[in-house]
């Protein structure tokens, strides 16, 4: 195996005109809305003044409800039954996004289930990574390496809230008091 070390290509902003290129039909529907065990993940993307951002686009990537990592193709041409684990949706004019999916399972026993998230927006120079954790398994959440490395106020920004209708609510804040925790997987040390 190669042990070369190449310097990565820089990212750039997704710009304002991704709307006719990146979104695709049923992009946010990892499972058909209303299907058995489906859950809605929804919220709003905000800027540093607390104003909703109308030109962001979100991607989620997750395990299936049993905690298995999906290896199926077919995200771009949803067939209504294959679970690919990946979804993409632009926010609407009021900054709101909606995914129809399933609760991710724990990938290993005792691990806290979460959605991996990538966010892109006009005005955002490079994509950002974050996570949205399910609120239920409090013991797993206590033991999670990332969450336990954060102050409680910062940790809260990665937690979805389970609403009475079973849906998951999670807002993303690019900047400000309650700025979402964004992740760097590649820093040394």
């Amino acid at each position: 195996m190669s042990d070369q070390h190449l310097v990565p290509t820089p990212g750039q902003t997704v710009g304002p005109f991704f709307g006719y290129a990146l979104p695709f039909e049923k992009g946010g529907e990892l499972v058909p809305p209303g299907s058995p065990n489906s859950v809605t993940l929804h919220g709003t993307v905000y800027d540093g003044k607390g104003a909703p951002i109308p030109d962001a686009i979100l991607e989620i990537w997750q395990a299936d409800s049993n905690g298995n990592v999906p290896h199926q193709t077919g995200s771009l041409v949803r067939d209504g039954y294959t679970f690919t684990g990946w979804g993409r949706t632009p926010v609407g004019n009021t900054g709101k996004y909606v995914f129809s999916t399933v609760n991710p399972g724990a990938t290993e026993p005792g691990k806290a289930p979460f959605f991996a998230v990538a966010v892109f927006a006009r005005g955002l120079m490079n994509r950002l990574f974050t996570r949205v954790y399910l609120p239920e398994d409090t013991e797993a959440l206590e033991n999670d390496a990332l969450l336990s490395s954060l102050e409680p106020a910062r940790r809260k920004t990665l937690m979805a809230e389970r609403l009475a209708d079973g849906s998951l609510h999670w807002d993303l804040r690019l900047q400000g008091e309650d700025e979402t925790v964004f992740l760097d997987f590649h820093a040394e040390g």
Binding site: I53, L174, L183
Partner: peptide, 18 residues
């Protein structure tokens, strides 16, 4: 970009399985 960039540094974490 002025109101659309994080002001806190990115938080280093090791990637999980997914």
């Amino acid at each position: 970009s002025i109101l659309r960039h994080p002001t806190k540094s990115l938080h280093h974490t090791d990637p999980e399985t997914i």
